[in-house]
């Protein structure tokens, strides 16, 4: 464990808590893409199957349970409890266009052709594009509530911090994982446009308005 990865995990937990609080407090999931939340739930389900087979550390197991529980709770809140506030019309990204290419790529490019490893690889590829429906929704509505932009900033920062973690681990531990690094770079690049808008607008108290 290093400071970059720990900061990344905290940013990740922070993003999830911001989202849950936003939905719970406002009793609405307006402006949030349910499809992205489903993709995140799939990411954690396919990545953390080893929760019961491989013990890494207490921290690792606790965080896996936390991510599985909170992603399930978010999907439940969006599609069951506050279903009436879910923005079906704008949340129209075809997630099969993400699921199928990620599944095919994970069958072709992976570290080991075993069920667990291919599912882990699928989860890594899927996570890198899972935010696309959310960014698509924000671009369609042309704006995002400030709380939603804080959520996206924290979520984007988590994998950006993981990139620093991988640099650190390569230099210090001679450890690297090209699949995770490649997907992490793609994932972080997808947020760059949003990071720019967040820093130039939201931090100045303006609303996040996308150029129409």
């Amino acid at each position: 464990m290093n400071i970059f990865r720990f900061a990344g995990d905290l940013s990740h937990v922070f993003a999830i808590i911001i989202l849950l609080l936003k939905i719970w407090k406002t009793r609405s999931c307006a402006g949030i893409s349910g499809k992205s939340q489903i993709l995140f739930a799939v990411v954690y389900l396919t990545r953390y199957l080893d929760l019961f087979t491989t013990y890494v550390s207490l921290y690792n197991s606790v965080m896996k349970v936390l991510f599985l529980a909170t992603s399930g709770a978010t999907v439940y809140l969006m599609y069951v409890k506050f279903k009436a506030t879910y923005d079906h019309n704008h949340d129209s990204f075809r997630i099969e266009f993400l699921l199928i290419p990620c599944a095919l790529l994970s069958l072709v490019i992976n570290h080991d052709f075993t069920v667990m490893e291919v599912l882990w690889t699928f989860s890594i590829y899927l996570e890198s594009v899972a935010i696309l429906p959310q960014l698509f929704l924000v671009s369609k509505t042309g704006e995002a509530e400030s709380i939603t932009s804080h959520y996206l900033f924290a979520l984007g920062s988590y994998r950006a911090l993981y990139l620093l973690n991988w640099v650190y681990r390569y230099m210090v531990e001679s450890h690297y994982d090209l699949i995770a690094i490649f997907a992490g770079v793609v994932q972080t690049i997808l947020y760059c446009d949003f990071f720019y808008l967040y820093i130039t607008k939201v931090l100045k108290g303006k609303k996040l308005q996308l150029p129409a």
């Binding site: 990865r5 080893d50 991510f67 570290h111 993981y162 001679s174 690297y176």
Partner: peptide, 10 residues
């Protein structure tokens, strides 16, 4: 340098 056999990251 080695790729991770066991995935120790979240």
């Amino acid at each position: 340098a080695t790729a991770t056999a066991q995935h120790d990251e979240l």
